[in-house]
Amino acid sequence: VKKMAKAIMADPNKADEVYKKWADKGYTLTQMSNFLKSKTAGKYDRVYNGYVIHLD
Rank of each mutant, 00 (worst) to 15 (best):
K21E: 14
G42V: 03
N49T: 10
K14F: 09
F35K: 01
Y48N: 02
E17W: 12
Q31P: 01
W22I: 01
N49S: 12
Q31M: 13
I53N: 13
D11N: 11
S38E: 05
M9H: 05
G42C: 07
Q31V: 07
N13K: 13
A23Q: 11
D45A: 10
G42L: 06
K3E: 14
T28Y: 01
H54K: 04
K25L: 15
N49R: 12
N49H: 13
L29N: 04
Y44N: 04
M4P: 05
L55T: 03
L29I: 11
V52T: 06
G26R: 05
N34K: 12
N13G: 12
L29K: 12
V52K: 15
I53R: 13
A41G: 09
V47A: 05
L36F: 00
P12K: 06
M9S: 03
H54F: 15
A7T: 09
K6F: 09
A10K: 14
K43H: 06
Y51Q: 01
Y48E: 02
M4D: 15
D16K: 11
Y48G: 00
M4K: 06
G26Q: 06
I8F: 02
Q31S: 06
I53Q: 14
N13Y: 10
P12N: 06
A23M: 10
G50L: 05
A41V: 12
K3Y: 09
D45S: 08
Y27F: 10
K20A: 10
L55N: 02
D56K: 15
L29E: 05
D16V: 12
N34M: 14
N13E: 12
S38D: 13
F35W: 15
T40G: 08
V1I: 13
S33L: 13
G42P: 02
R46I: 14
A41M: 10
A5T: 03
M4V: 06
L29Q: 07
K43W: 08
R46Q: 15
N13Q: 12
I8D: 03
K20H: 08
N49A: 13
E17N: 08
D56E: 15
H54P: 00
K6P: 03
R46L: 14
D11T: 05
H54S: 05
S38F: 08
A41P: 15
K43T: 06
L36W: 03
I53T: 12
V1S: 02
P12H: 07
A15R: 08
F35H: 06
Y19K: 01
L55A: 02
D11F: 07
K43Y: 12
V1Y: 04
D45V: 06
D24N: 11
L36K: 00
Y44C: 04
G26K: 07
A23T: 08
